[in-house]
Nucleic acid binder design. Structure first.
Length: 196
DNA sequence: AAACGGATGGGCT
DNA sequence: GCCCATCCGTTTG
């Protein structure tokens, strides 16, 4: 097997807003004993170091340590006592920025995703940050994992062929601080996006 | 179609 | 003790 399609660390070592936009259309691949699932990223949100809504705004802590580490790693956090959310770390080490993956269009392992989510509705499998981690089987065990290795059980790949799409820029969902910042990006017209 | 409340627990002041 | 980068079922208009 050649790992030609995996995204490299340089991709993530750029401006977080650029990464958030460019992640759209790329494919998140998840391998486990249960099987392989994959989804095309269709919605993201950027969280910058000087952003009151970011988990890193108050400085370093045990919880956010991955965000201050190298780019291209998974920053997973537990929220509302029930859900996990997945971020890709971005920019240079020490900056404290990342991109929340908010929605995927399922492209492989749909049956396994349905089983994990407890629904047959394709549009309800990965159309939200808490939903997609359930569909992928992502939890705190994935904290800090390298997303740029072809050997990783959670990794980011370029699709064999990329279809054209337009990117919509919008305000973020569920944040009370810095709510006016246009730091959410999604694929125009895609039905898997969490909210229009 | 929008608004609302409950579930449920960790993080941080 | 309060606040969450959420989701889902139920109620209300």
């Amino acid at each position: 097997m050649e790992g030609r399609s995996v995204v490299d660390e340089e991709f993530f070592a750029r401006s977080t807003l650029a990464v958030a936009r460019d992640l759209l259309g790329l494919v998140l691949v998840r391998e486990s004993e249960e099987g392989v699932v994959a989804g095309r990223i269709v919605e993201t949100e950027a969280y910058l170091h000087d952003d009151p809504a970011a988990h890193t705004f108050g400085g370093r802590s045990e919880r956010n340590r991955a965000m201050f580490g190298p780019p291209g790693r998974a920053y997973v956090y537990f929220i509302y006592g029930m859900y996990y959310c997945l971020n890709c770390t971005t920019n240079e080490s020490g900056v404290g920025e990342g991109v929340l993956v908010r929605a995927l269009e399922p492209v492989a392992g749909v049956e396994l995703m349905k089983r994990r989510r407890g629904t047959d509705d394709i549009l309800n499998l990965c159309s939200g940050p808490g939903k997609l981690t359930i569909a992928l089987g992502v939890d705190m065990d994935d904290y800090g994992v390298v997303l740029t290795s072809e050997d990783s059980a959670l990794r980011l790949e370029r699709p064999a062929q990329q279809q054209e799409f337009s990117v919509v820029e919008a305000t973020r969902i569920g944040v009370s601080k810095a709510a006016a910042l246009p730091h959410r990006f999604y694929v125009e017209g895609n039905p898997h996006v969490s909210k229009r």
